[in-house]
Design a protein around this nucleic acid. Structure first.
Length: 564
RNA sequence: UGGGGCAUGGUGCAACGGCAGCACAGCGGACUUUGAAUCCGUUGAUCCAGGUUCGAAUCCUGGUGCCCCGGCCA
């Protein structure tokens, strides 16, 4: 039923929800997307966003955006702004339900008092190192803190004074009183509050004690009456603690559900690692088009629809897996194929002089942007003249078999213009081809000849006199290894950074219509790939285009196979 | 036997006791004013061993492999 209306497949999460709806555990669906504002969102977060918003939509439910901002040492407003922008850009709407865990510091404090009064929490004076020692090991149970049996009154007093700022960072914590012999570390009297004399991006200096994730998250979900709290696999062990807090307090009890995070080949997906790439200058910033961040992908020319289609395609499960980046690329190409205007641009120009074309003559051809829909497509005028540029790789003096492009004596079609035949090859002293001379067939205007003779090769071109120059950035994978973490002894993932991930072409030749391209507006440079003007660096005076992704290149693949 | 989780073509996801299917990748072909797109065809999988059953990817038992957990991070 829900499948037909949204196109979303069912999965183990919708199975759980269906069960809850049937057995009456819940009568509606309310999810949340809870990022910590300590970095920019990446494609892995996009999966989670699509999941949370998608599942809610599927059940006519709601989704909150909540910033999980309980650690002021890592969080910044720059990040909250970028996260809001990214979620919006992806096409999701939290309406007026924008929350911060830090909005709940007061009620969270009150809940902590309640737990103390119930004898379920205590102030502990153990140092961090001592606490680690008391916690035990994987196989050995922990030991009770010597402060575990403080009176409720003393705990209340101490906790208030922690809040009042009487104690130094790290000198005391508030801990839940659970079970130091639990095989699950999260239940060995976990820390609920730590002292941090640190300014918070949202609450400023109002607080010097901050709640820990497990405590804050469970209760934030509860306060917002979230039904299904969807998170990643590593929190599976935390669920008993999540449940414990809510049970002890007897409050609204959300169901935590864990799924496998996204892992992509040739990509790192941890905010810490991405931050390192930014800080150490491997990329120009969080929104560098090579980054797997949502802002990087946006800048590169991916559309929100493509990213959502990708999330849809990969599905969701509990199995750790590594998605092949080619799947992402396929979805991006598929999306762009349907929306990108077709234009002509020459990346590596080779001058062609058409000897029998009149020197002063200029023609303009009206060319549709969507060639498969000639009648209804918008068009633009493309100028033609005696000297044009073609792609250097479209000429070979000594071509192999099945090379359908230009070579001495062969005839090819200039897309939407004329047939030309190469008559002469001009080289410099070192033997490099610098210029081609051709003749054209005036009868073949528009790219068809009246005699119907077949011309196999079709080339894109740009009139030299009218060409607009642009910088073009071509991107390759940021890493040379499918798994960037596969390193030599003592190495680290940055050893696998691809030194050729960015190729800048300083002066590509574009057809003049591209002068007015809008940032992020998708174009297909025919026979090359999808490109868009860079929203940061491009201007009418200095055009900069990013290659979003190349076209599938069967010819290049054949060549490679021949070599290998 | 510390605890928790996961195993289906090369990759990701379905099949919920009844013919193992979809997408990507691969391979072959058609078409083509993009060596793109499109269209058609096609190779290829249930971790292992037992058991229950007329029938098991699915249920049971025992193995094996991989992932997560000893922050006052999230």
């Amino acid at each position: 039923m829900s499948e037909e209306t949204t196109g979303t497949r069912s999965n183990f999460i919708t199975d759980i929800i269906d069960e809850h709806l049937e057995n009456g555990r819940f009568d509606h669906v309310h999810t949340r997307f809870p990022p910590e504002p300590n970095g920019y969102l990446h494609i892995g977060h996009a999966k989670s966003i699509c999941l949370n918003f998608g599942v809610a939509e599927q059940y006519n439910g709601l989704t909150n955006l909540r910033f999980d901002d309980t650690n002021p040492t890592k969080e910044e407003v720059e990040y909250v702004e970028s996260i809001k922008a990214d979620v919006k850009w992806l096409g999701f709407d939290w309406d007026d339900r924008l929350f911060y865990a830090s909005d709940y510091f007061d009620p969270l404090f009150d809940y902590a008092i309640q737990l103390i009064k119930k004898g379920k929490a205590f102030v502990c004076d153990l140092s961090a190192e001592e606490l680690r020692e008391y916690r035990g090991t994987l196989t050995k149970p922990g030991r009770n803190s010597p402060y575990r049996d403080r009176s409720i009154e003393e705990n209340l007093d101490l906790f208030q004074r922690m809040k009042a700022g009487e104690f130094a960072d790290g000198s005391r914590t508030l801990r839940a009183k659970i079970d130091m012999s639990s095989p699950n570390f999260n239940m060995r009297d976990p820390v609920m509050y730590r002292i941090l004399h640190e300014s918070h991006h949202n609450t400023g200096d109002e607080w010097c004690i901050y709640p820990m994730y497990d405590y804050a998250h469970a209760l934030s979900d509860s306060l917002e009456h979230i039904t299904h709290s969807i998170c990643t696999l590593e929190f599976e062990d935390h669920r008993p603690l999540y449940d414990w807090f809510l049970d002890q307090l007897g409050v609204w009890h959300s169901q935590q559900i864990e799924f496998a995070r996204l892992d992509l080949t040739y990509t790192v997906m941890s905010k810490r690692k991405l931050l390192q790439l930014v800080k150490e200058g491997y990329v120009s910033g969080w929104d560098d088009p090579r980054m797997p961040t949502i802002s990087g992908m946006r800048r590169r020319g991916y559309t929100p629809e493509a990213i959502r289609a990708f999330a849809d395609t990969i599905g969701v499960s509990k199995a750790n897996s590594m998605v092949d980046v080619e799947l992402l690329e396929h979805v991006v190409r598929d999306d762009l194929n349907n929306r990108a205007r077709r234009v002509m641009a020459v990346l590596e120009p080779l001058k062609v002089i058409i000897d029998n074309y009149p020197e002063e003559l200029e023609e303009e051809f009206e060319v549709p942007y969507f060639p498969w829909d000639r009648d209804d497509s918008p068009t633009r005028m493309v100028p033609f003249s005696r000297e044009i540029y073609v792609e250097r790789s479209d000429f070979m003096e000594d071509p192999p078999k099945k090379f359908y492009r230009l070579s001495p004596g062969t005839e090819v079609r200039l897309m939407n213009a004329y047939y030309i035949t190469c008559t002469d090859v001009i080289k410099d002293d070192s033997g490099n081809v610098v210029e081609l001379h051709c003749t054209y067939d005036p009868e073949s205007q528009g790219g068809m000849s009246p005699d119907g003779r077949k011309v196999r090769g079709t080339l894109h071109w740009v009139s030299a006199r009218h060409a607009v120059e642009a910088e073009c950035c071509l991107y390759d994978y940021l890493f040379t290894k499918a798994d960037p973490y596969e390193v030599e002894e003592g190495g680290q993932f940055t050893d696998n950074v691809n030194p050729d991930s960015l190729t800048v072409i300083p002066n590509a030749k574009l057809e003049p219509s591209l002068r007015t391209a809008q940032a992020c507006e998708p174009f297909q440079f025919m026979r090359q790939g999808y490109f868009c003007a860079d929203y940061g660096d491009s201007s009418p005076e200095h055009l900069v285009f990013n290659r979003t992704i190349s076209l599938v290149d069967t010819w290049a693949k054949m060549q490679k196979q021949r070599e290998g």
